[in-house]
Write a protein that binds this DNA or RNA. Structure first.
Lengths: 237, 237
DNA sequence: GCAAAAGTGTTAATGCTACACCCATGT
DNA sequence: ACATGGGTGTAGCATTAACACTTTTGC
């Protein structure tokens, strides 16, 4: 039997299959706190609860492509740091039918985050408060925590945990900053993700000794005090 | 519209859907090197290449349950440390049809690993050699590296990378050891995963100071020299 | 007694924390 | 001049690496 003959005889419809979706955790740092963009559901199920933007994976696109499509469609963003987080596959996680959802996070610099919010007015910004046990509350500008749809609270909690874990070993912090940034801004990102203050001199040295930053010689503008030097990310890893 | 009415009208068959599978990276430490169990494919596609044991996710079981079912069915193992690794979703990763595969690793102590191999004689043991760039070669007992099916080489490479990354921050090393083990055995596991020797006194102290080990007062037997004390894992996290 | 590996003490190096201080800029 | 945050030097602390050494067991 040749491989071609085998393929002709293969029947992919022989068994019931789950639907496959992606959900996007659109994250940035707003006012020193991690924040995400949520969508109020106006249909069942979980109507009037808040959900992560997401969508079904099409038969002819990869998971990563689906995540980027949702990013472009629902958040009007051309590109961003997108990374797979975890796949949620409990049988009853969606009451409609069996849906397996691959959670991604998309990390955005604050300016792009604000632009997404302006371009897609149905998105709601919520700051993420991480409790001691890791649970995450999504709080809008000045109100009570939003009730979350499906298992999206778990997704947010896992995303925050992953951010903390990867902070020292990857370049995610840079994804949350513009191309040029001050060391203070970088420290603010670290502090927001870790949820605790860091020592300034120690942080400076750790970053500069790491060899992943290059000074640009430029300085920030618009301050009413001494402007800080702007750095940019160097190399990869 | 009530939620029940909405659910009645929802049509889950409206769009083509990918199939969802799980693949299992059955890992242990054999002779001081990480090893995995592979299956030679005797059908198309990728006939005569080696693949990870896997299976399709049934409509009424969670992803984790599917992974455990594959573990029980294909490797005849009642239980093990099972953890989700990553979800692979390239469009053309399987030539038959669109299949999204959730990779899991299952970590086994050497004795249980050997038992699985004995109970399921179609499994082939291969040691995993990690190259400098992270690529993984699967070598059987005394032969050339096995050609791997689908994107399973990527899965193995990612599994090894994840093991290294989680070694210091989780209890995965203990999952690769029996209930009672010597500090030397624990160090051997760490060295096999990291691929480099570690300093003995430093390792001892780091482990004992970590507070996650409890001495049992017992000692190993059958040595031709001074027997080491047996420890057990303490607590969680 | 000898071989082999378990287990321990001591020192050196490293990285991080804390604190104090100086520097540069806008008002 | 002054307020404000940027940026730097130094000292202390904790953790880790390295080496030498002693101890215990089987043969």
């Amino acid at each position: 039997m040749t491989e071609a003959a085998f393929l002709d005889g293969y029947d992919p419809a022989a068994y019931d299959r789950p639907s496959v979706a992606v959900d996007l955790i659109l994250t940035s740092i707003v006012a020193g706190r991690p924040a995400a963009l949520l969508l109020r559901r106006d249909v069942h199920p979980h109507r009037d609860r808040w959900a992560l933007p997401g969508g079904f994976v099409r038969i002819d696109e990869s998971l990563d492509d689906a995540a980027r499509r949702v990013l472009a469609t629902k958040a009007r963003m051309a590109d961003a740091w997108v990374e797979q987080l975890y796949t949620f596959g409990a049988v009853d996680r969606d009451p409609r039918t069996r849906i397996v959802s691959v959670a991604y996070f998309a990390l955005l610099p604050p300016a792009r985050f604000a632009a997404a919010l302006a371009a897609a007015p149905d998105l709601t910004l919520a700051t993420l408060a991480v409790a001691a046990d890791g649970a995450v509350a999504a709080q809008p500008a000045g109100g009570d925590p939003l009730p979350l749809a499906f298992d999206h609270a778990d997704m947010l909690a896992l995303a925050m945990r992953r951010l903390r874990g990867k902070l020292d070993h990857s370049d995610i912090a840079f994804a949350l900053l513009p191309d040029r940034f001050t060391l203070r801004a970088l420290q603010d990102v670290h502090e927001a993700i870790l949820g605790r203050p860091l020592n300034k001199p120690a942080f400076r040295r750790r970053m500069l000794d790491g060899g992943r930053l290059a000074p640009t010689g430029e300085r920030e503008t618009g301050t009413s005090f001494r402007p800080a030097e702007l750095f940019r990310r160097l190399g990869t890893r």
